[in-house]
């Protein structure tokens, strides 16, 4: 049986991400890291086929810098020995599309510096790989991923933020106006 790491172990791993993985991706001729090459390198390592031809085409120019950076960071995450021990078929389009959805909401460096974002990334990748972190039940794992899920959080905020902002504005105005003279009133009612 494969031994799954705990979430804190993965977070620890993520936070040690070397600078090369978060260097600017090459887009439209500018940048430092060829993300596509990086992904294919990692895949070869996972498949233990060092000379296999590149399997993944990223078309970097059509992706945002944030998305490419997140892909690069994921590459670092996958260097954890655990991922070399498990099947790698989950490392596919479904996985990529998830990254595209979340990437624009988070400042890239936060994935490797902020505790919560690192946890989100660890849980997202584990979930995609079909494993539950050590010490958790699958329900717990699901709930904890929900709790740090940026896309979900943004949806909740989007739904309520405008109404809250308006309520705040009116509340403030009320406090200001109640202490002031109103227009002339007609008497007792």
């Amino acid at each position: 049986m494969t031994e799954v790491p705990t979430i804190s172990e993965l977070i620890h791993h993520i936070k040690r991400c070397p600078a090369e993985f978060i260097a600017a991706p090459v887009r439209r001729g500018k940048g430092e890291v060829y993300s596509e090459a990086l992904v294919n390198d990692v895949l070869r390592r996972l498949m233990q086929q060092p000379t296999a031809p590149g399997k993944v085409a990223l078309t970097a120019d059509r992706r945002s810098a944030a998305e490419l950076l997140l892909i690069q960071i994921c590459c670092w995450v996958l260097t954890h020995p655990f991922f070399a021990r498990i099947d790698n078929s989950w490392f596919n389009e479904v996985f990529w599309s998830q990254l595209a959805a979340v990437a624009p909401h988070v400042k890239s460096e936060l994935w490797v510096t902020d505790e919560q974002r690192a946890e989100e990334l660890a849980r997202m990748i584990l979930k995609c790989s079909g494993y539950v972190p050590a010490g958790e039940t699958s329900d717990e794992a699901l709930d904890r991923f929900d709790a740090v899920n940026t896309v979900k959080r943004i949806k909740v905020i989007e739904k309520t933020a405008a109404a809250e902002e308006r309520a705040k504005l009116l509340r403030r105005q009320m406090a200001e106006q109640r202490a002031r003279e109103a227009a002339n009133v007609y008497g007792r009612e």
């Binding site: 504005l169 009116l170 105005q173 009320m174 106006q177 109640r178 002031r180 109103a182 227009a183 009133v185």
Partner: peptide
């Protein structure tokens, strides 16, 4: 909101 008046 700027046109709000309040009567308590």
């Amino acid at each position: 909101p700027d046109e709000m008046l309040v009567y308590n």
